[in-house]
């Protein structure tokens, strides 16, 4: 990494945080989850909605396929299934859990049921998630897809927001304490693409485990002299 200090993804602290992205959250979500898992002892627990649990994006950034063994997924295809999955979380979570992820948590409660019932179920799910974050001291990461009352409830329940903005340089993460810097590649170009994150994560996990294969990935975007 050109001898410079290793760039970092924002550290997810215990409590509920909302990942706010411009487009579909799949890529940034994968980078954050993989980063959290390789630095922790326990697994990430993923309650999925609307097909965000794609193994492709995870493998794109994972330094080793074995990381996938440490992400436990169950998909809630309807509001009621999602609700029941959240209620079953205490059986899945303990103090070692690295992270709890709930992508598009608002979507099933908006699309599958009447408004009143959707809001009731969603608020109850949020309360359960917040209680888990508190009791087990575990970081929780939510994303949302809408802008209505259900989506607002997610923002209200969150202790803080992690912003991820698509820039010409790739995705940039911003929190109150953290901002992705622009990283010089040493040859006059900079980039923060997901392929770049893959290399960052590979380097970061070197102390944790040895990657199976040192795959050479090309950056998705390279900007000459962009800074």
């Amino acid at each position: 990494m050109h001898g410079t200090a290793l760039p970092e993804l924002p550290t997810l602290s215990p409590g509920v945080q909302l990942l706010d992205t411009d487009g579909r959250a799949t890529g940034p979500l994968a980078a954050l989850v993989v980063d959290q898992v390789i630095g922790a002892d326990g697994p990430a627990v993923w309650v999925d909605s609307r097909g965000h649990a794609q193994t492709g994006p995870l493998l794109d950034v994972a330094p080793s396929d074995r990381v996938l063994d440490r992400i436990r997924v169950a998909r809630g295809f309807t509001a009621h299934q999602h609700f029941a999955l959240v209620q079953s979380l205490p059986e899945q979570i303990d103090e070692d859990t690295a992270l709890l992820v709930l992508p598009a948590m608002d979507a099933p409660y908006r699309d599958d049921v009447g408004q009143r019932e959707g809001e009731r179920l969603c608020l109850r799910s949020l309360a359960t998630v917040a209680r888990i974050a508190r009791e087990y001291d575990v970081p929780v990461l939510l994303t949302r897809t809408g802008t209505d009352a259900v989506a607002d409830a997610l923002a209200t329940a969150a202790d803080r927001t992690v912003e991820c903005r698509q820039t010409a340089l790739g995705p940039r993460f911003v929190t109150d304490e953290f901002e992705t810097q622009v990283y010089p590649r040493g040859d006059g170009t900079v980039q923060t693409t997901l392929a770049f994150w893959r290399r960052v994560l590979a380097a970061r996990c070197a102390g944790v485990e040895t990657p199976e294969t040192a795959t050479e990935t090309r950056p998705e975007v390279v900007f000459d002299g962009a800074h």
Binding site: T55, D69, R72, H80, Q81
Partner: peptide, 12 residues
Amino acid sequence: NSYRHEFFKSAS
């Protein structure tokens, strides 16, 4: 309303 959900499994 079916509350029966899938079980957790590893991403692999």
